[in-house]
Amino acid sequence: MISNRDSKTGQALFEYLLRLGDDRLVLGHRLSEWCGHAPILEEDIALANIALDCIGQASNFLSLAGKVENKGRNEDDLAYLREAVDFRNVQMVEVPNGDFAHTIARQFLFDVYSYPLLDELQKSADGEIAGIAEKAVKEDRYHLRHSSEWVRRLGDGTGESHDRVQNAFEDLWTYSEELFFTDEVDDILVAAGIAPDLALIKKAWEEMVAKVMKDATLDIPGNDRYMAQGSRNGRHSEHLGHLLAEMQIVHRSYPGVKW
């Protein structure tokens, strides 16, 4: 399959797979930081489960990225041996966890993006991407249900929980536009039937965000503010470097270690 692709499509596909893989790898790592620290035991287990799903999905997308690139890099090489500028995740997933409300708001904003995206990717002209998506979308529907229920519970809960989750949405809104950033990577892959048009995903995202935030008695933040940009091309916040230092240290210190 790969050899039949002209190099421009191959390069676009590699970039696209890094975007899919890195979003989930970095988010999975952030979620794993809650292990042992969540407010209640059930949430500790839930966040660790969601982290595991995200890292598993990342592993599948990055493994495929390595095959498409065809330079002998596997998913571990891509996860542990790249620098921050080579990562293609959105900044939303790399910001520190904050309080529980902040983590839930971020997870919700990501889940309402990821679920419809994976749903569409099941129809991808690339059979391997479609296969990964078919598996992952079943997991994402649980993630979305978990985060959307918590948004309602916190928003429509006590005065303090309402304020905390409202503030979290205000803080995170800066990172929302990047989810729908498109460039020629998308143009090439949409034309080839490999990737869906992100404008469609954005419409689904806006509808679900509006519905859940209304139920939760929360105000949708306005777009008249600074909107983060550049991460799909490798421009990240300072937080990613710190995250990678922790995530990559064992692999870099003990290359090829097994246990």
Binding site: E42, I45, A46, N49, L52, E139, Y142, R145, H146
Partner: peptide
């Protein structure tokens, strides 16, 4: 239902 996430990915509590 106590939680949709359990001791392994495939189980709920």
């Amino acid at each position: 239902l106590k939680s949709e996430f359990g001791s392994t990915a495939c189980k709920s509590l």
